[in-house]
């Protein structure tokens, strides 16, 4: 069963008398454990689409199903609950909570969102920190670690709840080339290990080269970019 199914999805913003159609009747589906990117120029609707998939912004019309549930009509409370249970987020600016250590940041969704029991929670957090190679940095605060380490911690936080879907908005934009490659490889490794679906919104060709499916958004419309056998885009 597809993790994400969108049918005739529309998102329209109204600013005074002006209607802006950010997403225009798009259809797509994303299969479990896939590595997918949405690319397109600025203002093409990538982030809007990602926000809708992430239950942060409701669609204006159409059908959107995530993890088997229709999320088009979720209210604020239920949307938050749904995100906490099924979706992980990786942000461009890492967005770790500065007053919490790396361990506590990864622990946060299990403690404040899902209420896991203490022992099980700690075990799970250490497992994830080891998986992303951050176990030795667990006691440090975000201000004490590098950008790449922050993003690895953010990936651990996104995966710690066994999220079926991780949405990453420009996850490598603030990283140097080497660190960006390392983070992309890490996410791919996590996908292989935990069978999590990763969906990116990106400009970064390194991500596009690594994903299996790329959707191109142009002025609110969507088409799938097929990869050639040699890896070139067709």
């Amino acid at each position: 069963m597809s993790v994400v199914v969108a049918e005739q999805l529309i998102k329209t913003y109204v600013a005074g008398d002006i209607k802006i159609e950010a997403i225009r009747k798009v259809n797509f589906s994303i299969e479990p454990a896939s590595f997918v990117s949405f690319i397109g120029p600025s203002g093409s609707g990538k982030t809007t689409l990602l926000n809708m998939i992430g239950c942060l912004d409701p669609p204006t019309a159409g059908k959107l199903q995530v993890a088997g549930q229709d999320i088009t009509s979720l209210n604020r409370q239920n949307a938050a609950r749904f995100r906490g249970e099924h979706i992980g987020f990786v942000f461009q600016d890492f967005n770790l909570i500065p007053v919490l250590t790396v361990f506590e940041n990864v622990e946060y969704p299990l403690q404040m969102v899902q209420s896991w029991p203490n022992e099980k929670r700690k075990k799970r957090v250490m497992e994830m920190l080891e998986a992303v190679g951050m176990a030795d940095q667990a006691r440090k605060y975000p201000s004490q670690i590098s950008g790449g380490q922050k993003q690895r911690a953010a990936v651990a936080r996104a995966l710690v709840t066994n999220a079926k879907l991780v949405l990453a908005d420009e996850p490598t934009a603030n990283l140097d080339k080497e660190t960006a490659n390392m983070v992309i490889n890490l996410m791919k490794q996590m996908r292989d290990e935990y069978k999590t679906t990763f969906v990116f919104s990106t400009h970064d060709p390194r991500i596009v080269d690594n994903v299996e499916i790329t959707f191109v958004l142009d002025d609110g419309t969507l088409h799938k970019l097929e990869k050639s056998a040699g890896g070139d885009h067709a």
């Binding site: 942060l56 604020r76 409370q77 938050a80 995100r83 906490g84 967005n95 909570i97 946060y108």
Partner: peptide, 15 residues
């Protein structure tokens, strides 16, 4: 921004 982050990762409004 921090409020946005914790809200995005599923923290309920009452929390």
């Amino acid at each position: 921004n921090e409020i946005g982050t914790i809200a995005a990762i599923g923290t309920l409004p009452n929390k």
